[in-house]
Design a binder for these strands. Structure first.
Lengths: 150, 150
DNA sequence: GTATTCTCAACTTAAAAAGTTGACAATATC
DNA sequence: GATATTGTCAACTTTTTAAGTTGAGAATAC
């Protein structure tokens, strides 16, 4: 099994947010509904949505006919935002993070770390891409180009 | 603590390979030497180098004055190769991997997964970058541009 | 006041990562 | 051919992180 960089939790969060985005402006959506539609364990989704709600990116309402809705327009939420929110950084290594910069364990001096220089580059390009796509975007599905390389 | 996508082991592997690259053509380098110079726990490095050796990217020699050396010229090894070798894929999610493609757990159908489309894009750009830099390259260290965003 | 729906800290379980142990195999040297 | 040196490798332990559950509570609606 290949690791996968985005945790299950982050992936759930993204799908939940997409769901809310798709129903933006239509009153609160209940957790159970999202869980079912998005195939997410309901109890776990509880943790995730509460977190998103604490972050202020989602509004919640309790009681009958309560639920969740985006606190901001889906046009103002990028995938980069979501991933940073959930995993703290877009970087491949701690020392290459901008917001959550941290020395890598057991590393040599950052100044002349070749890997770091490269990873900063990767982070920037990734950010550029992920910050350019919004929750409101219908992402164009590439025409399944022969899944050949990489 | 922020996760960091590349495992400690992968980072060690990269540094070990850089070390070998820097000493390419100068006879075998001993494990203990690499461990010390690169600040890697020696016993753990054992595991890593054996693995790299089994992959055929490194040659080993036992006995007195033995050690390790690159099996290929550092110009023929990219960072992409190394990362793929150590972690199986460059992708952020399992379903966006080319070589190690795998369905994401608890996902919806891949065909209309918006996240997937985006992640394929990210993977491609990352690969482009990581496959463009070689172990032989002296990576130009960016002039520490005010570590502001991201 | 009762039913509904979100909240949240504490907990459990499961899995992966990190690192160690120790017996062994190849090579070199004397 | 014995000894010292250096890599090999599977099995194991420990640590950390991820994933998911529990259950008591708080807000709201009717």
């Amino acid at each position: 099994m290949t690791a996968g960089v985005l945790s299950q939790k982050t992936r759930y969060a993204i799908r939940a947010m997409q769901h809310l985005a798709d129903n933006y402006g239509q009153g609160p959506i209940q957790l159970a509904q999202i869980a079912e539609a998005q195939n997410i364990p309901a109890k776990f989704l509880t943790t995730i949505l509460s977190e998103l709600s604490r972050f202020g990116i989602v509004d919640s309402q309790r009681g009958k006919d309560g639920g969740y809705r985006l606190a901001v327009s889906p046009i103002d939420i990028t995938y980069g935002d979501l991933i940073r929110l959930m995993r703290g950084s877009l970087a491949l290594v701690p020392c290459a993070s901008r917001f959550a910069h941290e020395k890598c364990k057991n590393c040599l001096e950052e100044e002349n770390c070749r890997t770091r220089a490269l990873m900063l580059e990767v982070r920037d390009r990734t950010a550029e891409l992920l910050d350019g796509v919004r929750l409101s975007d219908r992402i164009e599905l590439v025409p399944a180009q022969a899944d050949s390389e990489n």
